[in-house]
Design a protein around this nucleic acid. Sequence first.
DNA 1: ACCATTTGCTTTAGGCCTAAAGCAAATGGA
DNA 2: TCCATTTGCTTTAGGCCTAAAGCAAATGGT
Lengths: 162, 162
Amino acid sequence: MVARIREKHDGALAGRMDIRVLLRLLSCSMTIEKRLRRRFIDQFDTTLPRFDVLAALERQPEGVTMSDLSRALLVSNGNVTALVRQLESDGYVSSRAAPDDRRRSIVALTERGRDHFADLATAHHQWIANMFAGMSPNDLTALYGLLATLKASIGAEHEESA
Amino acid sequence: MVARIREKHDGALAGRMDIRVLLRLLSCSMTIEKRLRRRFIDQFDTTLPRFDVLAALERQPEGVTMSDLSRALLVSNGNVTALVRQLESDGYVSSRAAPDDRRRSIVALTERGRDHFADLATAHHQWIANMFAGMSPNDLTALYGLLATLKASIGAEHEESA
DNA sequence: ACCATTTGCTTTAGGCCTAAAGCAAATGGA
DNA sequence: TCCATTTGCTTTAGGCCTAAAGCAAATGGT
């Protein structure tokens, strides 16, 4: 009913453009994430969050603290604890107390973890490449730029509420 | 190490563009979702998934089946059961057996549910508008189009694996 | 009419996630 | 030195989500 009235007013642009963009954005993210999640389980018996932890560690061969990890992954501190424990018991990750501050844990990939991650990353890269195969380099660059604009816009909204 | 080598090869385009776009896409989605989630809890003591159910029902005044809902929301069937039960016990949603097929539940908003949703939707619209305030109409249109391209690309990848 | 199959939903086990409370180590002012 | 505060991490309670098993109603071939 409401939708029908709106159509008469804005024609093809029925519905608010910002919400339409948001719904499409979330739909793309969800679909990609679900697909990656399923393939990680089916083909490697692991999960996307575990992969994310390994990927974050691979970028920091020196090791990082739990807090660093939770900031990098945008997940809560308690959550990181559980993920690292799992990876540790699988032998993919090592965890030692920082020499200067015994509260801090320095987490790093083990040799075995690096090998494991290399396998996962190869498949992951291939899956992404396939999912983005329909986008030209120009499309990718343009999308990258617009997402930067959006990210800035979102950030600005956060600031102004202070 | 690997990253440093790659930089020498592709310069500013270091790293694969598809992955960079993906990371930025996921980052935007995550940030928006987290913020909406938090505001729904803080200001209305409800959750984003519950809002999503109400929104889906609002679009179908005649009511829909559980399976319709789970398809529309891209979540599993069992999950919808729990969400609808909650909303039902809050009096926002009614559920009756379909006259022609007693397995099927027809779920619809109650009067109270419509009122409640109207409040939520007003706030939701405002939040979205603020988060997208930094994007021009041209930006929105361009982003909308590129996301359509991406969605199609993702869909095509799914087909070819058959 | 019978019954195997399919379809719609619910239940269960288990993983991810958060907020908030709790614990231990570090810090810094009195 | 003492101790209140801060900081880093873990634990707990609880919500979302899925896959898979289970149950009941509908369907269709015989």
